[in-house]
């Protein structure tokens, strides 16, 4: 097998909220071009895992590497783990775009402003260039005519597609999707999944926390099943859907279908 470039590596990541240990030692690597679906029952730690990757949550212990660079963490006097270098964290976050369940488009900005915000203000791309690219990405997600609209004037599906354009605009190493279709009306899910499918076919690296079994099975190159804070299954979709290694996963599949 060819040598593949590693984009993100997690090594024995632990995270607890008070008494509740949500991640109990997660290790995995995402390679360039992989589309990883993360499945699991609610409370299994899927979203926390995703949020640890771009440091919206700081892991209590374990090591995290993003495009070969280790994220430096340190302990405070009261035993909390915090980033040692905020500048590094900001730099790493800018490489990892995130698409949220609730879209989280900035409500006081137009769609165009949303898409160019991070390129212009964080990455210091010249405004002209950022606008040209924004047009291209908005076209790609199928809403080229919504540049001047505000998020509140768009349907949920359109907002999520705009949020995907915002993610593409930072030309990220990896795009993290946190249940991107869970807040959508059923008839709007398809249009968002279609955009994600296109991105997957372009070879973009994606980590997708989802409940869409169809997407996991058909689009992703790898599926991870998380339960009670541990990786229970990890493999290509065909293998693990046809031959689940654990009873938990077969029960989960049965319940979802």
């Amino acid at each position: 097998m060819e040598e593949r470039v590693v984009s993100v590596t997690l090594d024995d990541i632990h995270k607890r909220f008070d008494a509740n240990e949500v991640l109990k030692g997660i290790s995995l690597s995402a390679h360039q071009g992989e589309v990883i679906s993360v499945l699991g029952p609610s409370g299994s730690g899927k979203s926390t895992l995703l949020r640890c990757i771009n440091l919206l949550e700081i892991p209590d212990s374990g090591r995290l590497f993003v495009s070969g660079e280790e994220v430096l963490l340190k302990k405070t006097r009261d035993k909390r783990t915090v980033p040692a270098d905020m500048k590094q964290v900001e730099r790493i976050r800018a490489k990892l775009a995130m698409v949220f369940q609730q879209f989280n488009l900035w409500s006081h900005m137009t769609i165009l402003q949303n898409v160019i915000e991070a390129p212009v203000h964080v990455l210091k791309v010249p405004r002209r260039e950022a606008i040209d690219k924004a047009r291209m990405y908005l076209e790609k997600v199928g809403i080229p005519d919504k540049l001047e609209a505000y998020p509140a004037h768009l349907s949920g599906g359109q907002q999520q597609r705009a949020a995907i354009a915002r993610a593409l605009a930072v030309e990220p190493e990896v795009i993290l999707f946190d249940e991107p279709t869970s807040a959508l009306d059923p008839e709007l899910v398809g249009e968002v999944l279609q955009v994600m499918r296109t991105l997957a076919e372009e070879g973009r690296t994606m980590i997708v926390v989802t409940h869409e079994m169809g997407f996991a099975q058909e689009v992703s190159s790898r599926v991870i099943f998380l339960d009670e804070g541990l990786v229970m299954e990890d493999g290509d979709p065909e293998t693990i859907f046809n031959n689940p290694a654990t009873d938990r996963f077969s029960a989960f599949i049965k319940a979802m279908v």
Binding site: L56, E90, R91, R93, F100, N104, V122
Partner: peptide
């Protein structure tokens, strides 16, 4: 969520 989106994009 509005603030988190800013943080997530490296602000």
């Amino acid at each position: 969520g509005q603030l988190e989106a800013g943080t997530a994009y490296g602000m």
